[in-house]
């Protein structure tokens, strides 16, 4: 099937268009669903939720189909070293783009801390802003009292967040051990270390949920608690979503390991997952430092 000995160029495939339709339905449904659920638009004639649901289901179907195809091609030995490199580079640049996505939110955090909050309190050339518009507002970070008087409490770093840091760093180590085991053809070690990594990921997420409950119920900290709450939940929330995705990817890898996939030489998917996991870990370290700690 491979049309050249050097590089495998796949023939036409249905999965991309399925993916496009799936993403379109997801986006269209999501826009409508969000409007209805936050009452910007009357809920009658609501179609958002079902469309969103169909879109997501189709997306999952597409992923099974697409990745299944690639895995089968791989098992049939169609992957040349060059294609493997393409995959690796693709994954690398994808992670770069993810870094930039988080950079937008970190930029927001720094802007709020270094510029907008001090300005509202009269720093720099914004003295009149303070005197005329927000005379009672004082600069603090975390922002306990917003300019319009919404109050909140803050999430300290040394409880759950620190525990979570330890968990994620450990999981980065265990996935590396799994990788070494794979390279040494130690299948049992691979399975165990990988399983442990999945378990750590799940623990992290559970603790994150506990932390959110604590924030909502006891600290009065929510998305609506001013810029502190906004940045806090956007950063930890998107990070949490990435951990979820990473955990799912790790679980799939675990299943594939159990099925006997991967060889010491050929295990791109495993490596890509582990890169992703390390990336998620590094983002967390930044989060811990700048969202919780300083």
């Amino acid at each position: 099937m491979a049309s050249t000995p050097r590089y495998y160029v796949p023939h036409s495939s249905i999965w991309p268009i399925v993916g496009s339709i799936a993403l379109f339905l997801t986006a269209f449904g999501a826009a409508n669903f969000i409007q209805q659920s936050t009452e910007k638009v009357a809920a009658e004639g609501s179609f958002g939720a079902p469309i969103l649901f169909v879109g997501l289901a189709l997306l999952i179907f597409m992923m099974f189909g697409w990745f299944g195809t690639v895995i089968r091609e791989n098992l049939n030995g169609m992957v040349s070293p060059q294609l493997d490199r393409s995959f690796r580079m693709g994954m690398f640049w994808f992670i770069v783009s993810e870094v930039m996505f988080f950079a937008a939110f970190f930029g927001t955090l720094f802007y709020a801390r270094i510029i907008s909050v001090p300005w509202l309190a009269g720093a720099g050339n914004k003295l009149e802003t303070h005197l005329l518009l927000w005379p009672d507002f004082a600069e603090t970070w975390p922002l306990f009292i917003t300019p319009d008087g919404t109050t909140t409490e803050t999430m300290g770093p040394w409880g759950l967040p620190f525990l979570n840091t330890v968990i994620l760093v450990t999981s980065s180590i265990t996935i590396t051990f799994a990788h070494w085991a794979l390279k040494k053809s130690n299948r049992l070690g691979l399975g165990l270390w990988l399983g442990l990594t999945v378990a750590l990921g799940v623990t992290f997420l559970t603790l994150q949920v506990v932390e959110y409950q604590h924030a909502f119920a006891e600290l009065g900290l929510s998305l609506g608690s001013g810029i502190y709450g906004s940045t806090f939940f956007m950063l930890t929330g998107f990070h949490g979503m990435h951990v979820t995705l990473g955990t799912i990817m790790l679980t799939v890898m675990l299943l594939r390991v159990i099925r006997g996939h991967f060889t010491p030489e050929n295990h791109f998917a495993f490596e890509a997952t582990s890169w992703y996991w390390h990336f998620v870990d590094v983002i967390w370290l930044f989060l811990f430092t700048f969202v919780y700690w300083f």
Binding site: Y111, A112, I115, S116, V117, W119, L120, L133, W134, L143, T146, P147, D148, T150, G224, S225, G226, I227, Y228, S230
Partner: peptide
């Protein structure tokens, strides 16, 4: 993007 909450 709302000054009332500390944004800009």
């Amino acid at each position: 993007f709302d000054a009332a909450g500390g944004g800009d």
